[in-house]
Design a binder for these strands. Sequence first.
DNA 1: TCTGGGGTCCTAGGACCC
DNA 2: TCTGGGGTCCTAGGACCC
Length: 414
Amino acid sequence: MFYNKSGDNVKKQKQILHIDVNNAFLSWTALDRLENGEKIDIREIEAVIGGDESKRSGIVLAKSMKAKRRGIYTGETLYQARLKCPNLQVFKGEYKSYKKHSNDLYQLLLQYTEKIERFSIDECFLDMTEYLGNKTLLEVAYEINKRVKEELKFTVNIGVAHNKLLAKMASDFTKPDRVHTLFENEIETKMWSLPVSELFMLGRKTLPKLNNYRIKTIGDLAKQDKEFMIKKFGKHGLLMWEYSNGIDNSEVHYKEEKPKGIGNSVTLPQDVSDKEKLEKILLTLAEQVSFRLRRYKMYANVVNVQLRTKDFKDFSHQKKLCIATSNTKDIYKLAKELLNEMYKKGTFIRLVGLRVDSLVDKDEVQLSFFSDEEEKKQEKLDEVVDKLKEKYGYNMITRAGKLHSEEIIKLKDV
DNA sequence: TCTGGGGTCCTAGGACCC
DNA sequence: TCTGGGGTCCTAGGACCC
């Protein structure tokens, strides 16, 4: 606690940085290629990282600055991107490599503060409040920006502010390789003139609703009556109103958190209307999901199955398990039930998803005295299979039952 | 549209209980 | 009964993020 001139308690202002890797997947792929002796730096040409069109996942995951200047944006189809840019070069990504580069960045940032929240694979929040020493927040930002460039060979944008929201908004200003401040006295000049769609947590569904109320800029939103926003948009309305006014009291969550749910889903190479096939796919997904669950040493209480039809309609059903479990067989059994109750014969399915929710730590669960022999046997089986998977790689070990679905969906490394 | 996959959080309605 | 009101749990769906 600190004191102002009148002797009142005032909370010390937080000193926050938001680090955002520029065109992360593309930059990191560029580095890997250069390392392998390739001559062309794909950051310097019209290039994107894209999904696999033959697997019906042909979308843009990241783009170079040159591709961006052609109007290509993340999430659009490769087909659309090629129309805008006929010479576009498309490259595949490698998740493992991204993880490594992300860790390299994290290790460098740890030299400045331990209070780092890994917001995604390419974004971090730093709470520098207690770690500035005799430097200013801005000086640290420039130092990090320079060191990342020199030592890690990619560039970052850094937002400098007194809360996470403003730091995040700031890092999104002009790109790449820039440091931007967004302090309270700069909100009006730097943020309020932006289109309201630029505000964090304001998505494509909310934009037209706001436009209906003649709200076009973040400033327009900030000047709305708070109660009006709550009345029209509920909690989300309050959140948007606060964000537009630069209000955010959330902390930097630097302690590693356990997941609240774990899920895997797969877009099928062809639409499927055969329930037996869907069940096989569910078994494959159940193996994947429960393997990840066991790796976290957690149990699930809820199983959720998602289906997407060929015309892109999503359905999901979920159900509580009788007892929390991480058992492949138990999770698959309930998933199959859910599929059976929701699948209408003859419907063409494009995507199948399986996720587990309401996760609890394994050692916080009361072990049942009556867990029967069959259950113990299943646990042992999972344990043995998991060990083999850890040793020889996830895809080396399969169950007989799902062999057929392996022909349909090829698993990636977990 | 030739439209990914992994998450978190919120809302609304129904069941059930007091 | 021509039936109140509030709390909690469960489920389905949707919005948003990277």
